[in-house]
């Protein structure tokens, strides 16, 4: 059992939680996730919730989450000193590249895993290589924790669907506009996390513009460590070792978002 250090509401519906978990933190990498029990002593809701790791500290981890249902409601009511059951870290995480321009594209709470990535990368980038960030949301209040980015000297490009801040439109459009001004084939490495539609649009953009793109896939999970096989992502089948069952389509096989991901090469996924 772990202990909550803090649990703050950053903006309506968005929470920032610190959890004492030194052992787990010692093993964690940017882009990995944990499974948090939201059981409240009963069995409804029953399943753990996957949460991306926002920051890794010596004493534990921080997470950023949105209040979306009963599970997140239960943990949103918890406070400092309360016990919380966290297991992990799980998943592959992002590869850290110091030798390339990196463009980070995040939608809403999809921003969470990039804080630690930026923390670990920003001081180590090779000369002339830069981290650029683009954040998208429906409306400005859905962009929590922006202030926390300032300490890394990053001013993200912002897109809102209602035009309440930054570019009026989709973040993927903002990314494409920014690309057309400056980049040819030797473009940046795209790292993205957010809603499925956003990731799909970005994967499409990456293919059109010949860019490398890695996406973190958010899926419902029952276990988080590769046994329930519930969180699968359809990927292009490379070998013929899986049975062609006809109905589920030839050329597709399934990988677990929890153990094979959550970070996938966008070209591998069957969108």
């Amino acid at each position: 059992m772990n202990t909550i250090i803090f649990n703050k509401e950053l903006s309506p519906g968005y929470f920032h939680m610190g959890i004492s978990a030194p052992e787990l933190a010692g093993k964690a990498k940017p882009g990995q996730f944990v499974m948090i029990s939201v059981r409240d002593g009963r069995y409804d809701p029953i399943l753990r919730r996957p949460m991306g790791i926002m920051f890794i500290e010596k004493w534990g981890i921080e997470i950023l989450y949105q209040l979306v249902g009963r599970g997140t409601y239960i943990i949103s009511r918890m406070g400092p000193g309360d016990p919380i059951d966290v297991i992990g870290p799980f998943g592959n995480g992002f590869q850290l590249r110091h030798d390339r321009d990196i463009w980070i594209i995040a939608g809403g709470c999809g921003l969470a895993p990039f804080f630690e990535l930026v923390k670990q990368l920003s001081h180590k980038m090779e000369k002339g290589k830069k981290i650029t960030m683009f954040l998208g949301a429906r409306t400005y209040p859905d962009l929590p924790a922006l202030g926390l980015l300032e300490r890394f000297g990053i001013k993200p490009g912002i897109a809102t669907e209602d035009g309440s801040a930054g570019f009026h439109g989709l973040v993927t459009e903002l990314v494409e506009n920014s690309l057309s001004e400056s980049h040819g084939k030797d473009g940046p490495l795209l790292l993205a996390s957010g809603p499925f539609g956003m990731l799909r649009a970005l994967a499409d953009l990456a293919v059109r513009r010949g860019l490398e793109c890695f996406v973190s896939i958010d899926r419902r999970m029952a276990c988080g460590f590769g046994v329930c096989l519930g969180c699968v992502v359809p990927v292009k089948q490379v070998s013929e070792d899986a049975q062609e069952s006809g109905e589920s389509g030839a050329g597709i096989s399934y990988k677990c978002a929890c153990t094979d991901g959550p970070v996938f090469n966008a070209r591998e996924i069957v969108w």
């Binding site: 999970m221 329930c228 519930g230 899986a242």
Partner: peptide, 24 residues
């Protein structure tokens, strides 16, 4: 080998869950 069913494969229900993994 069996590759199983397309997702979504699980859904949480009151004090339980539904699964259609498809015997992957």
């Amino acid at each position: 080998p069996s590759k199983g069913n397309p997702p979504p494969r699980t859904v949480e229900t009151p004090a339980g869950m539904l699964n259609s993994i498809g015997l992957q």
